[in-house]
């Protein structure tokens, strides 16, 4: 089967800082793929390359047989890619419903010319709003539909972002730490929700998450990054027992002895700049 998203040998450098080097993996249609790794491993950088906020220094990203690097940030949603953000990218000046309607921005046709005259706008607004409301129902957010999204609990805003993502009718949904700020029970429910959404639609999911329980339970395929380099890939069980993954997360076993503290510090300080050497 042809992969939906194929990331091939992608490297990103900012000046002399290597954020990613030689990262390759792919997401199959209908798959829920997890991207994990310690802080600063380059997960969000991968996302930013896919959503065209960063330009990779080298490598290629193919989506559905198309060169994604030729696209611009606002055009990828047309191809069916939508993402959420680690620190939320909602709009406090809009209501919750309008936030979700914005996700379907590309589905609207009324532009600068017709909008002032309100030609055909009512019909379009009604259908966009109804559709957004349905999504809010699906995510149990209708209570706050007409509230500004400022000042809502973090977990709620995460769900609003998910609803906005779904409003774009994506084929590939990219979620950046969707479970942050949720309680344990809520994380389980979110996992069920994402799987349910995937089952009901023609949807693939690529997610970054620190909550290992959720990743292991939800994802069918897991990619592990460390220091901007892929260190493991496979089924959750394989990855969990991979010694390199254990080392990346817990540090080498001997790091906890006398000199451990100082070397751990140097490892942290070098995180951004060292690329792959540390694990090579």
């Amino acid at each position: 089967m042809q992969p939906l998203l194929d990331i091939d040998d992608v490297a990103v450098r900012f000046g002399g800082v290597t954020a990613l080097s030689g990262v390759s993996f792919s997401v199959m249609p209908g798959q829920i793929c997890g991207l994990i790794g310690p802080n600063g491993a380059g997960k969000t950088t991968v996302f930013n390359c896919i959503s065209r906020i960063y330009d990779p220094t080298s490598g290629s990203i193919t989506y559905d047989g198309r060169d994604l690097l030729k696209e611009r940030p606002h055009t990828i949603v047309r191809l069916g890619i939508m993402r959420s953000f680690q620190n939320l990218a909602l709009w406090p000046g809009l209501t919750v419903l309008e936030n979700v309607m914005m996700g379907a921005y590309r589905r609207g046709k009324v532009g600068f010319l017709r909008s002032p005259l309100w030609l055909g706008a009512r019909r379009e607004e009604n259908s966009l709003a109804t559709r957004a409301y349905q999504l809010l129902e699906e995510l149990d957010l209708t209570d706050i539909a007409f509230r500004q999204c400022e000042g809502l609990p973090y977990g709620t805003m995460k769900r609003i972002e998910l609803a906005r993502g779904l409003a774009a009718d994506p084929r590939l949904l990219i979620l950046d730490e969707p479970a942050t700020g949720l309680t344990h029970g809520e994380v389980t429910e979110l996992g069920d929700l994402i799987r349910g959404l995937r089952d009901r639609r023609d949807l693939s999911v690529l997610l970054v998450e620190h909550h290992m329980g959720m990743v292991m339970a939800l994802c069918e395929h897991v990619v592990v990054l460390d220091f901007g380099r892929k260190i493991a890939e496979g089924k959750p069980d394989q990855v969990r027992n991979d010694p390199r993954v254990v080392e990346a997360y817990l540090g080498a076993p001997d790091q906890f002895d006398a000199h451990g503290a100082s070397s751990a510090t140097s490892a942290t300080s070098a995180t951004g700049g060292t690329g792959g050497e540390a694990t090579a």
């Binding site: 001997d254 070397s263 140097s266 070098a270 951004g272 060292t274 690329g275």
Partner: peptide, 16 residues
């Protein structure tokens, strides 16, 4: 392991 990290730190410096 320490050596790797020192090397890593040097690498960072060099890149800087």
């Amino acid at each position: 392991s320490t050596k790797t990290q020192v090397k890593a730190a040097n690498g960072g410096l060099e890149r800087g």
